[in-house]
Simulated assay, not measured.
Amino acid sequence: MLLIYNENTNPYFNLAMEEYFLKNTSEDLFILWRNKPSIIIGKNQNTLSEINLDYVKEHSIPVVRRQSGGGAVFHDLGNINFTFISCKNNSFSDFRKFTQPIIDLLKTLGLNAEFSGRNDLLIDGKKFSGNAQYNYKDKVMHHGTLLFSSQIADLSNALKVKSIKFEGKGIKSVKSRVTNISEHLDNNIDILEFKNILMNYISAINPENKFYTINKKDKEEIEKLVEDKYSTWEWNYGNSPKYSLLNELKYPGGNIEFNLEVDKGVITKIKFFGDFFGKEDISTLEILLCGSKHKENELRELLNHVNINDYFLGADVDILISGILGAK
């Protein structure tokens, strides 16, 4: 098995890296990596229903969709991600096979970790690792998180969805009580020390394991995937399943209720209701917005040419866009 100790913390690069190696390796792989603060969305999820959009915008947090299913997770530099790519003897539902080495390592450090449910690892009943898998041809990619010294408050804030009603086929995340590995260790070690311990442990399992360094060609191909896919709105937001959004916003001029239907990231139907005043017929604005991407910069480009006050007395572009995107 090839071992990659990846030091890149760019989430777009790291998610693209997984896909690149999955599709281009003929040898089993194990990769350790970290992301700077970011939200990683499951393949089948509706992005806007999973994130606290205001918090994400305020803190400029990247939101990236991964290849595998499962729920949304918050990554920061206090979290280690591990990836197994298995090229043979695969069982798509065998989560225990890939998580057992993690459990075994933690036991050597005095921690009683256990596998729980369909894809979680727990210490004292609290989750420190969520896992997901993706199948490509005859290969399986298994990846998981290891909360070591993550900022739990940031995690909950970034993923805390406000009282917006989304309806659709997107898979909802299941919220769990979480903990950091470091809180349960007797010895005071930092995350990079732990990352080294984990890599050395995996390396020692099989004497045939050897390290691999990402080369120039690998990096160029990964960067192309970043540009074409992983950094794009189309993949991270537009790829959400068809959904409806019902939102209500109170502003100084009254209340506005937003009713949207979105398919492949494009607004297919939008209606405004409320006790607001306006001298122009609101249907004109509804027709204008149909066909627009459910995306801030495109909405802003459309609405910057409109006198919003003519339709919603006392409102402006920022108020209307925040309501359309589901913010309060």
Score class of each variant (00 low, 15 high):
F98W: 08
L146Y: 00
L15T: 05
V178H: 11
N24L: 06
E223S: 12
L325Y: 08
S116H: 14
Y134Q: 05
F312G: 05
G314P: 13
N119I: 07
A72N: 03
S283T: 11
L225D: 03
Y201S: 01
I191L: 10
E167S: 14
S38A: 15
H294W: 10
L147S: 02
I181A: 04
R118P: 03
R96N: 12
L121Q: 08
N6D: 07
I40R: 06
K23D: 03
L285N: 03
V178Q: 09
D318Y: 07
N6A: 06
A158S: 15
T145Q: 07
L105E: 01
S173R: 09
T83E: 04
I181L: 15
G170H: 00
F194K: 03
V178L: 11
I256A: 06
E19V: 02
N259C: 09
D318T: 10
Y230P: 07
I308Q: 02
T268K: 15
E183S: 11
N24Q: 05
Y5E: 01
N255S: 14
K216H: 15
E19K: 05
E220A: 15
F273K: 15
N255K: 15
S129G: 04
E257T: 13
A204D: 07
I171M: 11
N307A: 02
K269R: 14
F312N: 10
F148H: 01
L53M: 04
N297D: 14
S322N: 15
E227N: 14
H142A: 12
I164S: 13
H143N: 03
L146I: 14
F312L: 12
L260Q: 07
Y243A: 09
E280Y: 10
K88Y: 13
W235N: 07
G238K: 03
V64Q: 02
S283A: 09
A72M: 06
E221D: 14
S91G: 14
T213C: 06
Y55W: 12
K126N: 11
I189W: 00
D316Q: 08
G238Y: 09
V266L: 05
T232K: 13
D120G: 01
Y201E: 02
L225H: 03
Y243V: 10
K126G: 00
T232S: 14
D263Q: 12
L288D: 04
L105R: 04
H305Y: 07
Y230N: 03
I102R: 00
K271E: 15
G117F: 11
N236A: 09
R34V: 01
S292F: 00
N24Y: 03
V56E: 08
Q45I: 09
T83D: 00
H59Y: 14
E234L: 11
Y12A: 05
F276L: 10
N131V: 09
N89P: 03
K217I: 13
